[in-house]
Amino acid sequence: MSESLLDTQIPSNTTKGLEVQEQIIALMEKHEYSMRDVFAMRLSLEEAITNAIKHGNQDDESKLVTIHARIGEHGLHIEVTDEGEGFDPDEVPDPTSGDFIHRASGRGLMLMRAYLDNVCFIEGGRKIVMERTRNSELPIVEDDDE
């Protein structure tokens, strides 16, 4: 099966964001990706699109979020771009450290890094590039004493 492409722009609205997520998930199912891959990408798409809408575009519906998705036999490549001021991902605190673990938000970036084979920010943080290979072993979760 040849790769599937999805290119779209949405206003800064999380309901519209969910619709795009579902379109990409439907393409993954068409390409017979595993439930594990679908879980990983649903989580990553949710975090990336929500971040673009809320933190990037500040919920301003006049600003757009642009999504390019390429779903192939061997993996996915997805780009999400907002029209905000950008940010430095290195300045995002570790959500597991100190008091941050008790905060209600701030875990999206950590989760994306755990579930994706490649995640990087370009264009001053306004664009996130996400890649996951089919049947990736990620996330690596340590079983500890709980």
Binding site: L43, P95, T96, I101, R107, M110, L111, A114, P139, V141, E142, D144, E146
Partner: peptide, 10 residues
């Protein structure tokens, strides 16, 4: 797994 990655299981 999400709880463990984020350490919220602790």
């Amino acid at each position: 797994d999400v709880f463990k990655i984020t350490q919220l299981h602790k």
